[in-house]
């Protein structure tokens, strides 16, 4: 019956409407309805449903950042999902990423997750000596061999490879290496080249970002893995800083404006937003902003690093300006 209608895949059948299906397969409307329902339950079986209680029993420890203050701020570390860390260069994004790799691979008695780590470098080569130093200084009692052995590095230099690796190769790799963390440093590097941004490019890019986001989220969920994407920032110019007008409804008052990328307005200058725009912002579960503030003006050493959780389902302190001073 289905064969007669020349559907290529079960999905094609599922995506057709009842009347269309009835017509093509020459069956009654009710039968088409029943067929769709049956097919639905086979393609997506109900056991995929879980109660929150089951999820809670299954939930694992968060991934520690290796810093008490930061962990407290993150409520026990990062949870499985896609986390974006953004900030200007030199603010400590890579440092945080490397620490996460150390903590993911370190044994449990040292607060680690005793798993693997994957580091995808698209910009700078992986800072291997620094990594070694961090492992040594963070966990002095630990033989760094374990950490180094379990951290796997992938260099990607072009957008096409990045797309392929993230969409298809990452998930099996996570399973094979029992990775608890995947770092992508950075997500935007291979994208930023073609910012000639014609309208077609924008749509195409949004599409690619969606594909990546979807693949990462699926992998994060399937393997209960923390995926961290580092991202650069773009400056938000004075004019744009006051935001885009929130449209879509009558009488949007000029005072009701939405800040670009939904960032809170800071009193100071140097407002920045993560690159790749809203298309990418919609893809991440948790967003962490790193920035510097001057404690003692003019003194570079007196700068504290500020960690600011922007979008986080398990965090509430939305940009509470909590201070996580990096003890470097």
């Amino acid at each position: 019956m289905i064969l007669v209608a020349q559907f290529a895949t079960a999905e094609d059948v599922l995506l057709s409407s009842e009347s269309e299906l009835a017509k093509r397969a020459r069956i009654k409307g009710e039968d088409a309805k029943a067929l769709l329902r049956q097919l639905s339950s086979q393609l997506f079986s109900a056991p995929k449903h879980q109660t929150a209680q089951e999820l809670f029993m299954r939930s694992t420890d968060g991934l520690s950042t290796g810093d008490k203050l930061l962990d407290e701020l993150l409520r026990g570390g990062l949870r499985p999902g896609v986390t974006e860390v953004f900030g200007k260069s030199g603010v400590g994004k890579t440092q945080l990423a490397l620490q996460l790799c150390v903590m993911a691979t370190a044994p449990a008695h040292l607060g680690g997750l005793d798993g693997g780590a994957i580091y995808i470098a698209t910009e700078q080569p992986f800072p291997i000596t620094r990594f070694h130093d961090i492992a040594l200084s963070r966990l002095p009692t630990l033989d760094p061999i374990q950490v180094l052995d379990r951290t796997h590095i992938i260099h990607i230099r072009d957008q096409e490879t990045q797309q392929h690796v993230l969409s298809y190769c990452l998930s099996p790799a996570i399973a094979r290496l029992k990775a608890r963390v995947v770092i992508i440093d950075s997500i935007a590097a291979n994208f930023r080249g073609d910012e000639g941004a014609s309208e077609l490019n924008v749509a195409l890019r949004a599409n690619m970002l969606y594909e990546i986001g979807r693949a990462l989220k699926t992998a994060a969920h399937d393997h209960q893995c923390v995926i961290v994407c580092l991202n650069q920032v773009v400056d938000v110019f004075e004019g744009a800083r006051h935001g885009q007008v929130l449209g879509g409804f009558k009488g949007a008052s000029p005072s009701l404006q939405l800040n670009m990328n939904n960032m809170k307005l800071a009193a100071g200058k140097n407002e920045v937003a993560p690159s790749l725009g809203l298309a990418w912002s919609n893809m991440v579960n948790t967003r962490i902003k790193l920035s510097r503030v001057n404690i003692a003006p003019g003194n570079l050493l007196g700068q504290a690093r500020l960690l600011d959780a922007e979008t986080a389902e398990h965090l509430f302190n939305h940009g509470a300006g909590c201070r996580g001073k990096d003890d470097r």
Binding site: E11, H49, Q50, T51, Q53, E54, L55, R214, K217, H221
Partner: peptide
């Protein structure tokens, strides 16, 4: 409370 929340995780529009 938790056991009365039924969670479905969806990975694609077909699902």
């Amino acid at each position: 409370f938790l056991s009365r929340i039924h969670v479905f995780r969806i990975h694609s529009y077909v699902e």
